[in-house]
């Protein structure tokens, strides 16, 4: 059984159809890359998976549990949405670190609050700290744990954000153009970290404009255009041998850049 199954997701903003009939599935341990031009609906799709947008149609199923069903009109409580969205983690393009907390505190905050809610904070306190330090170490930031976001470079901020998302142990980690706000030098260090996660078979959905990176890291590539999935398959199929004219046209823009 697939880990994630997305069936017929639709989303409109007013009269504009941003997503129409999006369906795909992925297995645990896979890295899926979503590519496509700006405005093709990639980000909206990630936001739907993370319950930041409510789709107008379709279903989202994780581990066989239907997390979202647009045809089910019963009201979902806030607590329920919170539980469901924890299947997913999201790394934003603009990091969105909490400025008043150090790198370590950024990573620890959500696990701490969750433990407090469970009433097990005392027992878990030390373990949450250890885990957060390990994650930051894994991101190559062991010497930056006590720094505040404004004291870190963009690449370091994004790596803290990745550690923060991992701290909640999501089934699927989503990246929304994680390097688009970074210069080429800093892009490299973030991509290295994501590549490391792929090597450990972290289940990931990566929205990216880094075509070479997508080809190298992804097990599966989805090409979106105008709110539709135009092509999906292995990187060899979609990136190297696209069948649709629009896909070829899109990818041609990249090869011209030498990417």
């Amino acid at each position: 059984m697939a880990l994630l199954e997305v069936q017929g997701i639709k989303k409109n903003f007013g009269h504009i159809e941003v997503l129409s009939d999006i369906s795909f599935s992925m297995d645990a341990g896979q890295a899926v890359s979503i590519i496509g031009s700006s405005g093709s609906g990639k980000t909206t799709l990630l936001r739907c998976l993370n319950f930041l947008e409510k789709p107008d149609g379709g279903t989202i199923t994780v581990h066989g549990e239907k997390l979202f069903d647009a045809s089910d009109s019963t009201r979902v409580s806030e607590a329920d949405i919170r539980r469901k969205r924890l299947h997913f983690g999201l790394v934003f393009q603009s990091f969105n670190l909490f400025p008043q907390y150090t790198a370590l505190e950024n990573v620890m905050l959500a696990p701490q609050l969750a433990a407090k809610e469970r009433g097990t904070y005392r027992q878990e306190e030390a373990q949450i700290r250890t885990q957060a330090k390990e994650l930051l170490g894994q991101m190559g930031l062991s010497d930056r744990t006590e720094n505040y976001p404004h004291q870190l470079s963009g690449g370091q901020c994004q790596r803290v954000a990745i550690a923060r998302a991992l701290a909640m142990k999501p089934d699927i980690l989503c990246f929304d153009e994680p390097t688009s706000a970074l210069d080429p030098e800093l892009t490299g260090e973030v991509l290295r970290v994501i590549r490391g996660l792929a090597d450990q078979h972290t289940t990931m959905i990566i929205v990216t404009h880094e075509m070479a990176f997508a080809r190298e890291v992804a097990d599966y590539v989805i090409f979106m255009d105008g709110g539709h999935i135009l092509e999906q398959g292995t990187p060899r199929e979609v990136i190297d041998n696209p069948t649709k004219e629009r896909t070829k046209q899109f990818l041609a823009g990249y090869s011209r850049d030498g990417a």
Partner: peptide, 21 residues
């Protein structure tokens, strides 16, 4: 920025936790 609220939301925080923390 809206991103501050959203970052809290995707980490599973409640509205109250997001406002206070």
């Amino acid at each position: 920025p809206v991103g501050q609220y959203e970052a809290g939301q995707v980490l599973g925080m409640t509205r109250t936790q997001i406002f206070r923390r």
